[in-house]
Design a protein around this nucleic acid. Sequence first.
DNA 1: ATGCGTTGCAAAATCGGTTTAGCAAGGTTT
DNA 2: AAACCTTGCTAAACCGATTTTGCAACGCAT
Lengths: 327, 327
Amino acid sequence: MQSIADQVGVSRTTVSFVLNGKEKEGRISSVVAARIKEVAHRENYRFNELARSLRTGHTRTIALVVADISDRFFATLAFHVQQHALHKGYLVVIASVGEDRAQFKPTVEMLIDRQVDGMIVVPIQHTEQEFVRLIETGFPIVLADRYFPDLKMNRVIIDNFGASFQIVSRLLEKGCRRIAMLLYDDQLMHMQERQKGYVKALEKYPDAAQPVIYKIGYANTQQETRETIRKLFSNRDTFDVDGLFFATGGLAMYGIETLIQLGIPIGPQMQIACFDRTDFAPNLKIPYVHQPIQEMGKAAVDMLLSRIEKGEPTNESCILTPHIINR
Amino acid sequence: MQSIADQVGVSRTTVSFVLNGKEKEGRISSVVAARIKEVAHRENYRFNELARSLRTGHTRTIALVVADISDRFFATLAFHVQQHALHKGYLVVIASVGEDRAQFKPTVEMLIDRQVDGMIVVPIQHTEQEFVRLIETGFPIVLADRYFPDLKMNRVIIDNFGASFQIVSRLLEKGCRRIAMLLYDDQLMHMQERQKGYVKALEKYPDAAQPVIYKIGYANTQQETRETIRKLFSNRDTFDVDGLFFATGGLAMYGIETLIQLGIPIGPQMQIACFDRTDFAPNLKIPYVHQPIQEMGKAAVDMLLSRIEKGEPTNESCILTPHIINR
DNA sequence: ATGCGTTGCAAAATCGGTTTAGCAAGGTTT
DNA sequence: AAACCTTGCTAAACCGATTTTGCAACGCAT
């Protein structure tokens, strides 16, 4: 900037005004403005955003923190968050921390130290205390997908209970009476509500079997899912399962894979439902809960930006309704 | 920092030395150092990395630019790049630009304006000129997965030709003689070499049919793939295909899906091979090219960081050898 | 001719740190 | 006792911008 100022024969101040389109405000003559623009263009001048941010107090950067960016759900969310944020003039920094609170804290601090304007985070287990601390500082955060019911903070989630209830009801309507559910071993509300929806749906049918629930760990998902399914079907004299409900697309993928390997046909005698479209075996027309990931990303960005730009209060939470896809 | 200095009764300089672990260098007494540390901890002091970066000239941040973060290959690459970079003390900013050069240029500029120390990029078509400009500026870049043969710059890639050659050879050994290939309609070398490997393998067998190649666009991959497969099998009196080779995991997924829908059994009479493990239909034991994504990510990070930290010259290119998985 | 509002620009403070150069006090050497 | 080295710390410049305040010069009305 100094270099441009020298060439035109003005001060840095003047250059700054012109390059920021504040010629009126700075009362710079159009002659000088034109010369500055020309030189800036010729020299291929680019702002040092670091310096600008230091002075202005904002970076026009937001962070997105997810458990695992190689997961299809999170990757898609990341894509849409990024597209929408870019459109609003913001850069998004994606951080993938694993379902691991040891990585979560330092990562979040690293991002805040770099002065991101706000964060969209899909929280992981055992991080609630981190959030109460963050809320105290007043740092703009919006939770996506998962949330803490006791913490008063912005969030955009889906109606997990309702979706679960509806899709399990569908299974029941189609005649299933002994439905088992597989979900992740996770205390967070999104999982709890999917479980509750399943239980509640079963209650409607007095002749349906009691809930049978299997919890799978995040660490060895594939293996645990396989073993669970194997066990379930080897005990068929005890519990003659005729329906399976998977709480996520990942679980469904591994589960269906195992069914196929075991040679168990999926059809009227053995029906399946799950969350998220699984690309796996699309010829099996499995009903699923379609989460509006794009809307979720957009809503989260909009909520965060209005919080950042307008100051404090926004509507606290946004609950999206997923579609039940019946195929 | 000023606040800490005031409380301890020293200058900002002293505080800075202590908090940066340069007490020896700054010749600060251990008594003062201890008091500073204590106050900093009590006040929960955190560096403003923006300000530090402005002064030191580096941000300890690198960017990763890919076409589509929701693609499984890129998401996995992103995951490993991030893990390894974090381990080396760097933050990574992931940017997803689509296979779209209109988004590519502004995104790269945005990142450079924010003073990232370097970039790992998976280039997209028609961006070669951008890179010659970037190279002139001396900005540290390493290319991953794809590359420009004419541009002398750091890159980490795999032996696409060799992998393609080997896996198609496998199909030929197993008896296929009329093998068609599906690949993306892309001028970049990685696709070209996969094609060449296929052609070269066919040449070994004089009784094999001439190459039959279908090019699929990035925009409507799923639909185009389906139509291509349908067309291929409806013309079976003209070309009685007995083998299919997919240049990527995505193409394979859509292709196999269509085969299943058409009721064409995959087996000795109709064999398949592809790049990348497809989670789709794992009960079909399809041989595939396993790309060492984690090694690729690590190598790219290491190459970039040594370029950034040690200055100019590093070994120009790193060629990884994929495994052929035979199942 | 005096006062006043406008126009066109620049000086200087500021953001929050890092880093170089230097200064005073005390100890050691000669 | 003079010269010199250490020790322990600080002043001030600097990174590259933004922004507030100020100050000439000019035109215009009185």
